[in-house]
């Protein structure tokens, strides 16, 4: 790892702790090669974060989502017939996307669902990070 990488990692870590910026793109370790990465949208609302990824042609059973050390990893495999192809535009093989989660999320509450080639991972905010509204009591 170069000094520059160490510095960006430190920056990311500090941002995670103090600034609490949401869902940093996490650069995969060099030993994790993948042939394509799905396109994602990341949304934040009161409840938490939602990662929406386009994974057309991937069986939901072939998707593996892990959470380790605040790093959310979405990986999987897309294989399809290549025999007799006259036109080839689609990527095949393994895919990988990683995101660093902020401190304020409830890691145990992460849920995932898939429909029509779209994967949706919901990451709830932890109870203490939810905005609290305090009403002022009158006399």
């Amino acid at each position: 790892m170069t000094a520059f990488h160490a510095l960006t990692d430190l920056h990311r870590e500090l941002g995670r702790v103090f600034d609490d910026r949401p869902l940093y793109r996490h650069t995969p370790a060099t030993n994790e090669a993948s042939s394509w990465s799905p396109q994602v949208d990341i949304k934040e609302d009161e409840g938490g974060f939602t990662v929406i990824a386009d994974v057309p042609g991937v069986d939901p059973a072939d998707v593996d989502i892990t959470l380790d050390n605040s790093v959310l990893t979405i990986r999987g495999e897309r294989e399809s017939e290549t025999q007799g192809l006259r036109r080839r535009e689609r990527f095949r093989g393994s895919f990988l996307r990683q995101f660093t989660l902020p401190e304020s999320v409830d890691e145990s509450g992460v849920k995932a669902s898939a429909s029509n080639g779209v994967l949706q991972v919901t990451i709830p905010r932890s109870a203490k990070a939810k905005p609290l509204s305090i009403t002022v009591e009158g006399e």
Partner: peptide, 23 residues
């Protein structure tokens, strides 16, 4: 929208990546 075309003896099969749609 990546599209592919596969040819067999009896047919041609066109596949298009279009996630998040309804049929």
């Amino acid at each position: 929208m990546s599209a592919e075309m596969q040819e067999t003896d009896a047919a041609v099969v066109v596949s298009i990546e279009a996630p998040g749609m309804e049929s």
